[in-house]
Simulated assay, not measured.
Amino acid sequence: MAGFIERGASWSALAYGPGFAVLGYLAELLTGTTHAIAWVIVGLGLATITAPWVYARRRFLTVQVTDDELWQGRERLPLDQIAEVDDVGAPTGARVLGGGWTVPGKYDTLPVRLTDDTVVLAWAKDAGALRTALHERLVT
């Protein structure tokens, strides 16, 4: 059975800075004056400041469903604690999974009822796919 995973960011974002630097260098080639060392520094600098951003997004915004756990950022919830994922209402003040105060921006909310009858808020960019993956794990 395939698992569900949404990464918070892709490491390919590190290529944007050097790519921009290459385009800048090529544009300078058209003018006749080039600053190759400066463009290398710009490319490395942009990649360097992008790396912590990608790392943080991958650490805190990754959503994954394994055979026995739902991972939401830094938090892991055993699947045997989940009672229901369909037709669960989201009460005001429900706890957000993953350690944050609110659901991350650009992510959809999926209310989940736990076995102790509390409701928590799971989140994913594709909440429907998350619901399907959780439902498959709970039924089997």
Rank of each mutant, 00 (worst) to 15 (best):
A15K: 03
Y16D: 00
Y16T: 08
P18D: 02
G19N: 06
F20W: 03
F20G: 14
V22T: 08
G24A: 10
G24V: 06
G24M: 08
L26M: 13
L26H: 05
A27R: 06
L29G: 10
L29P: 02
L29Q: 15
L30P: 00
L30F: 05
G32C: 03
G32P: 06
G32Y: 02
H35Q: 12
H35E: 12
H35T: 12
A36K: 01
A38M: 08
I41Q: 04
I41P: 01
I41M: 10
V42P: 00
G43F: 07
G45H: 06
G45V: 03
G45W: 02
L46A: 14
L46P: 01
L46F: 04
L46C: 11
A47W: 07
A47Y: 00
A47K: 14
T48E: 00
T48C: 10
T48L: 15
I49D: 00
T50M: 15
T50D: 00
T50Y: 00
A51Y: 07
A51S: 09
A51E: 04
A51K: 13
P52T: 10
W53A: 12
W53L: 14
W53C: 06
V54P: 01
V54S: 10
V54T: 10
V54M: 08
Y55H: 13
A56C: 04
R57G: 03
R58G: 02
R58Y: 01
R59H: 11
F60Q: 13
F60N: 14
F60S: 10
L61S: 05
L61A: 00
V63S: 14
V63M: 15
V63R: 11
Q64T: 06
Q64K: 15
Q64S: 14
Q64N: 14
Q64M: 14
T66Y: 04
T66N: 11
D67F: 04
D67M: 09
D67E: 15
D68L: 11
W71Q: 12
W71K: 14
Q72W: 09
Q72H: 09
Q72D: 01
R74H: 06
R74P: 00
E75M: 13
R76T: 07
P78K: 07
E84R: 15
E84V: 10
D86I: 12
D86A: 11
D86E: 08
D86M: 02
D87V: 02
V88C: 09
A90V: 01
P91H: 06
A94V: 08
A94G: 05
